[in-house]
């Protein structure tokens, strides 16, 4: 018979851990924070609790949620992607340029006639994002540049290209596309584009938490040597992660195009920081290995609830930055506390 390496009894510990886990669960806390925020803002400004407000928040949320979901994969894998905001601008500009100059899509095109052009535009936008993501992966995997610097470089390049292509001004006013207005019915908080975002996020979440792709993302962020020793092709996986992040940023670029009715080079500026803030508030660790899709979704929602609430109660929007800073600090210290309670 073989020996057995025995360890302490654990069933009871597991149950206790489970209860502690639910109570200190990031998602539970975030939902609590969200409810409190909505409560405070509604008390201070009853108009806050309304469909138009929800619609505004969700529409702002949509584009950042898309890039924050990509960022969640990147951060869980132990990296960071600073280029996503610039990708939003670049992909929107390139898509707008293609639709305006390549497909002759202008104000004279109405309704369903615009649909094929918009689909092509969306494919172009996603393609641009995917391409930049692959460049990021090349810089990180092949040239061994740390993700922070690699994606900072592509961020600069994307900003530059989008200004060059657009000559600095927004391309194409698509405000008259009746299709676009049909797609963005203001009265409904779940406009079609937001619904599309939610579907994309749901699929991404399933892959993150239920599939091998997600498991490898966690494994690499947790211990990339162990992942590679277990037979995982770490470089190939990271390539897919950065490509995904880029592609989602491209999709966000199209989302912003549809909102603005134009491709603007500056439309994504600073969005990468919103996305990183959302991911961190959502409980992910910049050290990698930790993070949940629900956390990111709620993190982004909290971000824009604060933004819109502050505006509605008449506080200068700059206070948003202070509130976000407090939320980030709270999220990180919550993590530290959790670590002290036995998690490493």
């Amino acid at each position: 018979m073989t020996g057995s390496v025995k360890v302490a009894p654990t069933a009871r510990n597991d149950r206790r851990d489970h209860l502690v886990g639910v109570a200190t669960n990031q998602v539970t806390i975030l939902i609590g924070v969200m409810v409190i925020l909505v409560g405070i803002f509604s008390l201070l400004e009853p108009k806050f609790f309304s469909v138009p407000t929800a619609n505004n928040i969700l529409t702002d949320w949509g584009s950042v949620a898309l890039i924050a979901v990509g960022q969640t994969f990147v951060i869980i894998s132990g990296g960071i992607d600073l280029s996503v905001g610039a990708i939003v601008g670049l992909s929107g500009v390139v898509a707008a340029w293609t639709m305006a100059n390549g497909l002759g899509l202008d104000q004279t095109v109405k309704g369903a006639d615009a649909a094929p052009g918009l689909v092509v535009g969306a494919l172009v936008a996603v393609g641009v994002g995917l391409g930049v993501g692959l460049v990021n992966a090349f810089l990180i995997n092949v040239l061994k540049i740390v993700p922070f610097i690699a994606t900072l470089a592509t961020m600069g390049a994307c900003l530059g290209f989008s200004v060059i292509i657009s000559s600095g001004a927004p391309i194409g006013s698509a405000n008259d596309f009746s299709l676009i207005s049909a797609m963005d019915p203001k009265a409904n908080p779940f406009s079609w584009t937001v619904l599309g975002v939610i579907i994309v996020i749901a699929i991404a979440g399933l892959f993150l938490h239920k599939s091998r792709f997600g498991l490898y993302t966690y494994a690499i962020g947790s211990n990339s040597f162990a992942a590679s020793a277990a037979g995982i092709n770490v470089k190939r996986h990271l390539t897919m992660v950065y490509a995904l992040s880029g592609a989602l940023a491209g999709l966000a670029g199209m989302f912003v195009y549809i909102r603005l009715g134009a491709g603007s080079p500056s439309s994504g500026t600073g969005r990468e920081l919103d996305a990183i803030a959302a991911v961190v508030i959502g409980g992910a660790s910049l050290m990698g290995g930790i993070g949940r899709i629900w956390g990111t979704i709620l993190g982004a929602l909290i971000l824009f609830t604060v933004q819109s609430g502050l505006i509605m109660i008449g506080v200068a929007p700059d206070w948003k930055k202070v509130v976000v800073a407090v939320l980030i600090a709270a999220a990180v210290s919550a993590q530290v506390l959790q670590n002290r309670n036995g998690r490493k």
Binding site: A219, N223, F225, A229, A230, G231, I232, G289
Partner: peptide, 24 residues
């Protein structure tokens, strides 16, 4: 099969995910 001196496991994954890592 190899057991490395240290860092052979992914600390954030569960026991079973580590046992099956690479062979899910």
């Amino acid at each position: 099969e190899t057991l490395y001196q240290d860092s052979g496991l992914a600390p954030h994954l569960t026991v079973s995910e580590n046992v099956f890592l690479g062979r899910e």
